[in-house]
């Protein structure tokens, strides 16, 4: 069964402190630590593109697991900040990694729901085409589109990338997916020149739609809270994660929040937490849930199939 074998990530060394912006944006420590949940956000090197971040995540993957590059037959990149409009970034990653010419490559244009969509896509695509070894990358360098004067966005986002290795000898297996879209609200989170976010609209969307969506997925799978060890929610901000948790009436220890030192890395926040959970054998069944630009959302039940 195709499943998640290993996950690795890359975070740039350069960090920008939100404490240094306290005066400019009239912030206090409580707001930075307990509302945003982002003390520092990572910033990529100026010349690095999405593909470079992917390559660095792949290099970190090789520190964890031995991969025969010539056997990789599928490579997908989830990004909305590609290297270029044309070609697709996955082809550039393919070239930089020197993958086989028999490798399928395509991009998925999604934001914070992108990892869940990507996971469903790569497993379905590989299964239907009898492929054996896949790489699912997430890399969305938002520093390229952030207006540093915009308080709504300048404090939240960090650069980073992840890679998830899929094969038929994996540890974590997605069992059931659920997806949703509200395209009528696409203007609430949009980039024409720089990123614009209507904070109130995005908050209302996440606070109302996502808890209900997660509850519906649980009901569909005939599961309840006692069957779930972890809820791995997209790390939009601490306030968003706390709000969803409270509305789900789930205990705090089941809902990790881990972006204090790097920020909201868009489609990479979920795999960055999964990267740790993959080794936590206590976590047997979890929900992953991504939500954001589109407005788009997606969730999945993930089960440990091997220790």
């Amino acid at each position: 069964m195709l499943s998640i074998k290993e996950i690795a990530s890359y975070l740039p060394e350069t960090k920008v402190s939100n404490y240094a912006k306290k005066e400019k944006f009239v912030l206090d420590d409580n707001f930075i630590e307990n509302k945003l949940g982002v003390k520092n956000h990572t910033l990529k090197m100026k010349d690095d593109k999405a593909s470079d971040l992917c390559v660095k995540a792949y290099t970190n993957l090789l520190d964890k697991i031995s991969i025969e590059k010539e056997n990789i037959d599928c490579c997908i990149v989830v990004t909305q900040n590609p290297d270029f409009n044309i070609p697709h970034t996955s082809a550039i990653v393919h070239g930089k990694l020197g993958l086989s010419q028999n490798c399928a490559c395509f991009d998925i244009s999604l934001g914070c729901s992108g990892y869940v969509y990507g996971l469903s896509n790569i497993i379905s695509f590989m299964k239907n085409n009898n492929l054996r070894n896949g790489l699912l990358f997430t890399a969305d360098p938002y520093s390229e589109i952030i207006d540093s004067e915009d308080k709504n966005t300048a404090l939240l986002f960090g650069d980073g990338a992840t890679v998830t290795f899929i094969n038929d000898n994996g540890v974590l297996s997605p069992q059931e997916f659920s997806f949703g879209t509200n395209g009528s609200a696409y203007k609430e989170l949009i980039c024409e020149d720089k990123l614009y976010m209507n904070g109130r609209a995005v908050f209302n969307f996440t606070a109302t739609t996502i808890p209900q969506h997660i509850q519906e997925l649980l009901a569909k799978c005939r599961l309840d809270d006692s069957d779930i060890d972890k809820y791995i929610l997209h790390q939009g901000s601490k306030y968003i994660v706390d709000t969803i948790r409270k509305r789900l009436k789930v205990s705090e220890d089941k809902v990790p929040f881990e972006i204090y030192e790097y920020g909201n890395t868009v489609s990479s926040t979920i795999p960055m937490i999964l990267e740790n959970e993959i080794r936590n054998v206590e976590t047997k069944r979890m929900i992953i849930s991504g939500f954001g630009v589109g407005l788009s959302w997606a969730s999945a039940i993930i089960e440990r199939i091997k220790i």
Binding site: G199, F203, N204, A207, T208, S237, Y239
Partner: peptide, 15 residues
């Protein structure tokens, strides 16, 4: 009541 709390208050009032 900060800028995040206030949108939560408005949402709760709406609901």
């Amino acid at each position: 009541v900060d800028s995040l709390d206030i949108v939560n208050v408005y949402l709760l009032l709406e609901e």
